[in-house]
Nucleic acid binder design. Structure first.
Lengths: 137, 137, 137, 137
DNA sequence: GTGGTCTAGACCACA
DNA sequence: GTGGTCTAGACCACG
């Protein structure tokens, strides 16, 4: 379980971490119930302050992605997403629109764009199912 | 040409403006060569500081989306995107991945997700062609 | 003798315990000389760590509320309060001021506030005298 | 407008500040609409970090006591207390109980306690009405 | 050992 | 000039 942070990226380090954990959850690298790395060891490994990681975890907990048991650790939740169907769709549409606008700005046409989307869906799904196989052993 | 800003959104006002102009460009509401609203009238209409608008325009100019002709105004550029094919694709993949991860997190399945993407592509394309018709008149 | 702890309360468990013991002493549910519950049984009943209870007792002992006889247990002291008259009054005024400020903030008027104070005094006194009756049997 | 902080008090500095501001509001030294001291000047005066004051203000804003206008400053709100009658009474009872328990522990009897409460009510009311007179001039 | 809080310094967004 | 954010270090609460 190795995460990477880029100090030059402009994006806050704690958000980089939170995104990587979300990606790990989506790709099955992290599965519900799994423990996340403890603050201190991970901070040492990434050479950042413990609080920066704590902030990333706090962000994820506020969004219901993980749960933290003080004195025990942080664990990936069995994510049921308490939001309504409508609210979830609104969140998702925002993300989709950003990708669509970026595609237009970069002059990527509809065909190419849909192909890229399908490719990324395949990518995440294959990693998730591979992780599922791995867990069965 | 009406923009809207939300002071409660947490997102900086100048970025809200820049995003809306990018969206307007993607949907054809603004076309290459079009003039953007002048600082003073727009600032008055939106009840924000002229500096905030100037900052949004500066942001867009730095990204090559618009160009500023001192004493004339700001105009939407014929967007060539100086980035290489590879760099453009990398940027776009990041956006697509965020949408895919969000879909996973919200438990939106592949079918539904692709349908939403197609819907948004249609939406932007229809607005762009409608704007094109309008421009012919 | 049943105490209750709330893990969601934000307040440290050991302080919740200590406060409840102080309340029990004020209301007469615990009387000078009474033994407090032993560590192990209480820890089991409340499903918390023995150290947490030990810490609550240590806190109370440091304040002179109870005394620990190694190998015997913990007992409620005949509370003499070693503080000077002046120091005691200062402590009490701080508590009173906080209640008064809160009343102002919540727009509770003088009449209502004094009525509430009298009500709470009655409540604690009635519990204390009832406990006194019980002890005589 | 001078506040004082005590680094030896055990109580977090930002809470000391928040309490003092609440007291100032209850005693009329600060009135609805009044501006609170700006972060930087006050931090310099009290020799503490700007963030510590910001945290005190954030606490008060979360409780609806003040409102902060970024770029403008922080202002005492016209406190209407959105809580229900029942919720307010519960908050207030907690404060009152703490004072009553402290009185018992310090062996202050009912008469003396009620006298002290009345004295503090008088004190705050006299300061508030004096401040009201001052404002009329 | 675990996570949480308080304080701080540097930098950013905004008017 | 205003307040806000990000990162950090030291210390605390808890098991």
């Amino acid at each position: 379980m190795i995460f990477q942070v880029d100090f030059q990226a402009g994006k806050p380090v704690y958000l980089q971490l939170a995104d990587q954990i979300r990606h790990a959850a989506a790709s099955g690298r992290l599965r519900p119930g799994d423990a996340l790395p403890s603050l201190r060891p991970l901070a040492e490994e990434l050479r950042i302050n413990r609080n920066t990681i704590a902030k990333a975890y706090a962000e994820l907990e506020a969004q219901g992605v993980i749960e933290t048991l003080p004195g025990k650790g942080c664990f990936l939740k069995d994510n049921h997403s308490a939001l309504t169907q409508q609210a979830r769709q609104r969140l998702l549409l925002t993300e989709i629109d950003e990708a669509v606008v970026m595609a237009h700005q970069l002059r990527v046409d509809r065909e190419k764009f849909l192909a890229l989307v399908a490719e990324r869906l395949d990518y995440f799904e294959s990693k998730a199912s591979a992780a599922g196989e791995g867990a069965k052993k």
